[in-house]
Amino acid sequence: MEHLVNPKVKSIEISGIRKFFNMVSDTKDMISLTIGQPDFSTPTHVKEAAKLAIDEDYTSYTHNAGDLKLRAAATNFVKEKYQLDYDESTEVIVTSGASEAIDITLRTILDENCEVILPGPVYPGYEPIIHLCGATPVYADITRNQFKMTASVILPLINENTRAIILPYPSNPTGVSLSKGEIEEIAHLIRGKDIFIVADEIYSELSFDSQHFSIGSILKEQTIVINGLSKSHAMTGWRIGLLFAPEKIAKHIIKVHQYNVTCASSISQMAALQALTKGIDDALPMKEEYKKRRDYVFQRLKAMNLEVVKPNGAFYFFVKIPSKQISSFDFCLQLVKQSGVAVVPGSAFSSYGEGYFRLSFAYSMTTLEEGLNRLASFLEKQ
C-alpha cells in the first residue's frame, strides 16, 4: 500500500539532526554535543502551576487560540521585552510548540508554485513543510556573510513568485543574530511588497550581547512572529509555542490550527501562564550561564585553529571542518568512532551547511570540557 502514500510526503526525510543522533546514540561512553535542548530544569514554580491545574481539573479544551489569560500574558510579555503590540483577543495563538506554529503559518500563506526565501544553512524544519505546500524553497547563501541574511543578500532572490521570507534569529544552527540596523534594512526592502516575513524568534531571550530587536515591531502588517517557551524557560517537552500576527492573517491561521490540534494542552498552558508572569525573567540566569559557556567554547575552538563565527545568541557554534577532503557526515562519524564525541553534520542544515558541523553548548561545563578535549585530541591525530 506504500505506493498510495502522498508523493510529497515520501520525498521528505526525517531531520538530519535526529537521524545522526539516532545513529550514534548507542555508542558507549559517548559525549553528545548534538541536541539543542536546555540542560536546565523547568523552573519549580512553573511545575507547581501545572500540578495545581491538574488538581483543579483544568483538563478540558481551551479556546482554540488558547486561554485568554495566557494570551494576555503573552502579549504583555512581548510588549515589555520587544515592543511588540498585539491584541490578545485576535492576534495571538497558543500552539503546540513553535514547530506547530511554523507548520500552520506556512500552510496558511503558501500555495502551489510560490517561493520562500530562507537562509542557508538553516534549521531543517522549514523546507519539508514548504515542499508539502507545493512551494519552492530558495536558499540565500549566508556562508560568506558571517552567517547573516541581510537585505543585500535577500534582494537578488526576490521575484514575482516570492511569497515569504523566513527570518530565524538568533539562528539555529549558527547562533548568529541580526542587529537593529540590519533588521530595519530588511523592513525597508520588504515594506509594501506582497511578501510575508516569518520571524522565528524562539531564541530571542537568549541574546547575549545586545537586546533582541523584532522586525514585528516595525513591520507588523507583513510579519508573523513565532516564539515559545522551549528555550527561554527550559520547557521543550511542555510544547507551548506562541504565534503573533495581524488579525486579518491570524483569523485564517487559527482555522488550520483548529483542524490540526484543536488547542494546546490545557495543563501546559497554565504552566506557561506562570512562566510568562511570575517567571517573566526566568531566562536571565540561564542566559548568563550560556554566555559563560559560549565564551569558554569559543576560546577552545580558536585554540584548535578552527574557523568559527562567534555566536551572539542561542547555544550553537557552526564550525568549519578543517579538511576539504571529507564530507561533514563522514567527519562527524569518524569523530564519534575514534573519539566518542558527537556533533551534528552541517549537511543536516541544507547543502549550504556542507563542510561544517554544529556543536551545541547546552550542556554542563564538565561535559563541554571533556567533549572539547576529545575533539582537540581527534584533530591533532588528523
Rank of each mutant, 00 (worst) to 15 (best):
V92C: 13
D39Q: 02
G192E: 10
L368S: 09
L219V: 12
P137V: 04
L68K: 13
V138Y: 06
L306V: 00
S96D: 13
K248W: 04
A135V: 11
K79W: 06
P311G: 05
I226A: 07
Y82H: 10
H257F: 08
S11H: 06
P285K: 12
L52D: 09
A362S: 14
V261L: 11
I165P: 01
T44N: 14
F208C: 13
A187L: 04
S179K: 12
P156N: 06
E112C: 07
V116P: 06
Q274Y: 03
L206T: 13
Y126R: 06
F213I: 03
H63C: 07
F244S: 05
K310S: 14
Q325I: 03
K251E: 15
T44G: 12
A53F: 03
G228R: 07
E88W: 11
E369T: 12
F361S: 08
D194H: 11
A348D: 06
L243R: 04
L379T: 07
P7A: 10
L167C: 11
H188F: 12
K291R: 15
E91S: 08
T95H: 07
A74T: 09
L178C: 04
N6M: 04
N260G: 07
F208K: 14
V343I: 12
L33E: 05
R358W: 00
M286P: 01
K51Y: 06
L379Y: 08
Q146L: 07
H212M: 06
S327V: 01
P7H: 08
Q146W: 00
V344D: 08
L33D: 02
L375I: 11
V225Q: 08
G279V: 09
D85W: 02
S268W: 03
Y259C: 13
G355R: 06
E380A: 12
D55S: 15
Q222V: 01
S265L: 11
S327F: 03
A187V: 12
G125V: 02
Y61Q: 12
K79M: 09
V5W: 08
S25N: 14
A362Q: 08
G120F: 04
E56L: 13
Q325N: 15
E370R: 08
R294Y: 03
K337H: 13
I215E: 01
S32Q: 12
L52Q: 08
M30F: 01
K220R: 15
I254H: 15
T150P: 00
Y290C: 13
D87P: 05
I104F: 01
R358D: 11
T277F: 11
I158M: 03
S179R: 07
G241D: 02
P7Q: 11
L52W: 01
G355D: 06
T277P: 07
P322D: 03
A199T: 04
F361P: 05
A272R: 10
T367A: 04
